[in-house]
């Protein structure tokens, strides 16, 4: 800091505290609501202090769910979400790192065309091609399956670009040394390039896990069987019923549980998260 101005410093902290309060407040309210006893929400205002039923609410949601909403118990949806996020993460990273390797370290016919095809995925978010994509997945018989949930999401231009960018910074001499040392393309990839990419893979994994976890529209379309519901789409079903039958204590317990895994990852892997976010968008 250039100069010392106590008043400005106090103002700075004040701005930050207000900012943090605004950001945290909705979640605080949700958490408080999730600890209330049933019946709290028939009248009056949402309380701002914890209620007595936290353990009860969370246990109910995890084991039984809200039967009226047609959603399965939360534990099942959490497992589904985890599966989906993990498969999307592993899938995206695997196919991206391989295609980046092909594009950077080889010359083959139609290489530029391949690069552009990968690039095009940036321009076609699932939201704008809902119906035909649904038709493809349906025709392939992938509705209500983990494969249908994940496969259409694992093409990734951003991850491919990130790895390409990183590979271009790996010194040529390293490849040459490996070739002199008798490593072919596969051995070089496994022995040298993959270990060098560790940090990038980790950073990207954080971003991709979150991406997979927060998916909403796609699971909504391809799952009609409640066994495949993910927690993010399941919550919407519960919330839709909460207006008629105000069980906000249970809905908010589900909301907290649905937020917790990715939020904890961001908080505890902040360094990797920031690296992944800032570098994929560069």
């Amino acid at each position: 800091m250039v100069e010392n101005r106590p008043l400005l410093n106090i103002a700075t902290h004040l701005v930050l505290i207000i900012g943090v309060a605004i950001v945290v407040f909705p979640v605080y309210v949700a958490f408080i609501a999730s600890t209330q006893a049933p019946g709290t929400f028939f009248r009056g205002v949402t309380p701002l202090l914890p209620g007595p039923a936290m353990i009860e609410n969370y246990t109910t949601m995890l084991t039984d769910g809200m039967s009226t909403s047609g959603a399965p118990p939360l534990w099942l949806m959490l497992v589904n979400s985890t599966w989906m996020a993990v498969i999307v993460t592993v899938g995206k990273i695997s196919i991206s790192i391989l295609s980046a390797y092909a594009i950077v370290y080889f010359r083959f016919p139609l290489r530029a065309l391949c690069f552009w095809i990968v690039f095009v995925t940036l321009m076609l978010p699932v939201e704008v091609r809902i119906i035909p994509t649904f038709a493809v997945v349906s025709n392939l018989g992938l509705l209500n399956s983990y494969l249908g949930l994940t496969l259409p999401l694992i093409a990734s231009a951003t991850a491919t670009f990130l790895f390409r960018q990183f590979f271009l910074t790996v010194p040529d001499e390293l490849t040459e040394a490996a070739r002199v040392d008798g490593a072919g393309p596969v051995k070089f990839f496994i022995d040298i390039l993959l270990p060098l990419s560790r940090t990038n893979i980790a950073a990207l994994s954080v971003i991709m896990f979150i991406y997979g976890w927060v998916q909403y529209l796609w699971p909504l379309l391809v799952t009609t069987d409640s066994r495949y519901y993910t927690v993010v789409m399941g919550i919407k079903r519960m919330a839709a019923y909460a207006d008629q039958q105000p069980q906000w204590n249970l809905v908010m317990a589900a909301v907290i549980l649905a937020m917790l895994p990715p939020v904890l990852i961001v908080i505890f892997m902040q360094r990797l998260f920031v690296k992944g976010l800032v570098e994929t968008e560069k």
Partner: peptide, 26 residues
Amino acid sequence: IAMVFQNYALYPHMSVRGNLEYGLRN
């Protein structure tokens, strides 16, 4: 043949021993 590079081109994630062994193991 063996080659010594200007920027050494040592494998940064391997120990010195690993660097020396790599070509032999291959």
